[in-house]
Nucleic acid binder design. Structure first.
Lengths: 336, 336
DNA sequence: TTGTACGCGTTATCAG
DNA sequence: CTGATAACGCGTACAA
């Protein structure tokens, strides 16, 4: 069921059928109708490969994410999908599971799938060979969540957000403020947030506590729980993301601490689920869906201009604050 | 940078270059090496459209999900992505947000993206026009999570799982067992689970309580909370999915009920996050990732046989039980 | 307004 | 083992 078949049955030429699909208004209403009828009856779908081959535009965007287990990326992907749909692009998806090798392979698969541009979430832009490769191939790409001069990025100011949070916690009377992260080396965002913590503590003359790294093992969680049961435990825990915060909440509960009376827990990301938890999760919010949308917008604009994207094209989106029962209300220092 | 260019620079014909990429062993090691070198230097990537046009195999699978906000589908997608990757397929993704119109449009976009086969999660197979359309076009497809004779499905036995759960709750002493669902009409699974609840209650001579439908509004949640504060509230809540269970947990907390002493809450799906909550979420588990993998496996096999899939190809995977603090240990009736 | 014919980059066939 | 060449289905000058 190719265009030829449709043309034959409609008693017209392939050119006309093509016009009916790409430029309906320039074809005679009667022939148009007849062609459309035939096409519908046959369930004809234009062959995308042939079209792409001819037009050199696949109308497909590649998306590379670390994982979908973290709702942050799922939310971002929703935004990507929505914006892409609006702009007439399809998206092909790969995940890397935070693994360098898988990342390289994933990028290669995206490339050979014929994508026109890429939304990338990498562990660390500085060490990712995917970025060089993409550059070599000459496709526009944008990094979601990362912050770096070298590439086009869409993100919030991770460092500042946490810096700011530490200030607010201090303003509200907290002195012993701790930080809990995932595996620090697995994410440049986590590193920037940690940096914000260190700087914030220093700025206020507070002693930074040793960071708790919480990979997804029960052992690490138990360690945190033990530490929370020592004398003079922290009164606030700043977590590098909401998933970590949820697990910290659990450690606190197992340690017998009341949240937020004994311990305030603050997350980062603002995943939707956080509001449904008990206690609801206080969190620094990122506009995840907007980040996704913005990435696609940048890409599509670049594609339309037939240009690449570079560091100057980066977009900073504002972070926000979602109050929650896991943290006592903070002093009124404006957020964001 | 087409195959022609590579051929020119390598001083050979396009046919040979093609062979180097598709059948390396049949070409002279020296020419092969030279071609590979040139290709690498140029960053040459075979044009997928041209290849697809010629071979009539796009190596792309279409995936249509309701949303990624529910981790169940994110987990399933992980499985789909993993299996597809293993088998050399790319996946293009669309979401429908449980909306009929968007579903139709999404399917059309998948089709025109040139996918070879489809993994579909629809609200209700009986009313989905996507399925007819897909049939008309003649592509293999499989429904994830649904159960119906009419189509190839990969799912657990939803009705039986809940039926079984009700029995176990009753065995453990519960009499007033309630059911909380999302919007019942939005999902045939939810309906089947509800049916299991009704049948289970009847089989044990218990009175089914009016179902609580919990769309994502705070109002509905408050209703549940109010009802839990009446005299003789249920002692157990069977929830049609884990997200609903989490919100039910919140309603219980707001109502001042202790979980699990006053009220047991059981979810459905077994999302990973459930284990990290406090109380951890007891749940009937589905092998979400395996469901995704199985879908892709069926599809790829069908593609290899050049066949379509039908009701007879359906696969039932076993459900399981994940104990959690949200429910007191159940009597030993074997689960699953 | 419509039709003819070329070429997009590959793979596969067939000769050498 | 290698090269020439004919499709694959479509969009688009160009001609009518």
């Amino acid at each position: 069921m190719s265009i030829t078949e449709v043309a034959r049955l409609a008693g017209t030429s392939v050119a006309t059928v093509s016009r009916v699909f790409n430029n309906p208004e320039i074809v005679n209403p009667q022939t148009r109708a007849s062609v459309q009828r035939v096409a519908r009856e046959l369930g004809y779908v234009p062959n995308s490969s042939a079209r792409t081959l001819r037009t050199r535009r696949s109308q497909v965007l590649g998306v590379m994410l670390p994982t979908l287990s973290n709702p942050v990326f799922a939310e971002c992907l929703q935004g990507i999908a929505a914006e892409a749909e609006q702009r007439g692009y399809a998206i092909v998806l790969t995940t890397t599971e935070y693994d360098q090798e898988r990342e390289t392979a994933a990028a290669e698969r995206l490339l050979s799938a014929g994508v026109e541009a890429l939304v990338l979430v990498v562990s660390n832009p500085a060490t990712s060979q995917t970025l060089q490769r993409t550059r070599q191939v000459g496709l526009p790409y944008v990094l979601a969540y990362s912050q770096t001069e070298e590439h086009a990025c869409v993100s919030v100011d991770n460092r500042q957000a946490i810096y700011h949070l530490v200030e607010r916690l201090h303003d509200s009377g907290h002195q012993r403020i701790g930080m809990v992260t995932g595996q620090l080396h697995a994410s440049d965002r986590a590193q920037q947030r940690y940096k914000g913590y260190l700087q914030g503590m220093q700025a206020r003359g507070l002693t930074a506590l040793p960071v708790w790294e919480l990979p997804f093992t029960t052992q690490a969680l138990e360690q945190l729980q033990q530490d929370l049961m020592q004398a003079d435990p922290p009164t606030a825990l700043v977590c590098s993301n909401d998933l970590i915060a949820i697990r910290s909440l659990r450690a606190a509960a197992l340690a017998g601490l009341r949240v937020p009376q004994d311990l305030c827990v603050v997350g980062f990301d603002g995943i939707a689920l956080g509001s449904d938890l008990t206690p609801s999760l206080a969190s620094i919010t990122q506009p995840n869906e907007a980040i996704g949308r913005q990435c696609v917008a940048l890409l599509c604009d670049a594609l339309a201009r037939n240009a690449l994207l570079c560091g100057n094209d980066s977009v900073h989106l504002p972070y926000g604050w979602r109050a929650g029962e896991s943290c006592t209300p903070l002093s009124s220092t404006a957020f964001s």
